[in-house]
Design a protein around this nucleic acid. Structure first.
Length: 198
DNA sequence: CGCTCGATATTCT
DNA sequence: GAATATCGAGCGA
C-alpha cells in the first residue's frame, strides 16, 4: 500500500488535520530479525500554524527542537514534553507559509495490538493509543524517528489512505493561547479519543 | 467519578 | 525560575 503523497501536506494545516481523520498511521519495527507492522486509524488530530498561531511551537521562530516544522512537508516531528512523554506530528503547511505541523492525538489500534500491549505494559485496548503520549509509547516512537519521511513507503513511519470517517472541529487541548481556534478534529463516533469534545 | 501532584526536557522570561 | 501540544498514581466523595 502506498503512502499519502507530499502534496496532501502542502495545504493549510487545519485542512490537513481534518483530512487525516480516518487515515492509517503505520509503524514498522524490527522484532527478532523480521519486520512487524503496527498500525491504527487516526481519530483525533490537531493543527498547529506559525505566525497566525500563538499556541504553536513554531510561533516564536525556529529552534533546534522545532526545526522539522520549518523543513519539507510530510516529515515526522517528534518532541519530548513534560519531562516524560513524546508526541508525534507530521509537518505540513500551505505553500505560502514557512512552518506548521499536525499533532496526531489518538488512533484506533488495527495491526500489532499484541506488541502495543507489551510496549504500554497494559492489557486494556482502549488505553493503548488514546492520547498523544500513549500512542508514541505503543508504537515505540521517540526522538529517533524525528525527521523521518512519512511519505516514503519504505520508511519506519508512514500514513496510508485508510477509511472514510466523519470529522468535526473543536477546541484544541492543553493549550492556553489561541484557544478560540477550532483546530482539533475528531471522529465523534470513536471510543478511542483522548478526551470528550464539545 | 473528579481532583491534586510528580515526573523533569526544552524553551522562554 | 516558570510554563508547557501529558499521563497515571493516589486520594476522597
Amino acid at each position: 500500500m502506498d503512502c499519502i503523497y507530499p502534496t496532501f501536506y502542502q495545504r493549510p494545516t487545519d485542512q490537513v488535520a481534518e483530512d487525516l481523520i480516518g487515515k492509517l498511521l503505520v509503524r514498522r519495527i524490527k522484532e527478532n530479525g523480521h519486520t512487524r507492522r503496527l498500525s491504527g486509524i487516526i481519530v483525533e488530530a490537531e493543527a498547529y500554524g506559525h505566525a497566525d498561531d500563538a499556541a504553536s511551537h513554531a510561533h516564536r521562530g525556529q529552534t533546534k527542537r522545532n526545526s522539522v516544522m520549518f523543513g519539507q512537508v510530510g516529515m515526522a516531528y517528534v518532541y519530548f514534553t513534560y519531562g516524560n512523554h513524546f508526541c508525534l506530528n507530521v509537518s505540513a503547511r500551505s505553500t505560502s507559509d514557512v512552518a506548521g505541523a499536525v499533532l496526531i492525538r489518538s488512533i484506533e489500534p488495527v495491526e500489532g495490538i499484541d506488541i502495543m500491549k507489551k510496549h504500554r505494559h497494559a492489557e486494556d485496548v482502549h488505553s493503548l493509543t488514546s492520547g498523544p503520549g500513549k500512542l508514541t509509547q505503543a508504537l515505540e516512537i521517540d526522538l529517533g524517528q524525528n525527521g523521518v519521511d512519512m511519505t516514503d513507503p519504505a520508511s519506519e513511519l508512514c500514513i496510508e489512505p485508510g477509511v472514510k470517517r466523519q470529522a468535526i472541529a473543536t477546541q484544541r487541548i492543553g493549550i492556553t493561547r489561541a484557544v478560540d481556534k477550532k483546530w482539533r478534529f475528531v471522529d465523534p463516533s470513536s471510543s478511542f479519543l483522548s478526551r470528550k469534545f464539545r
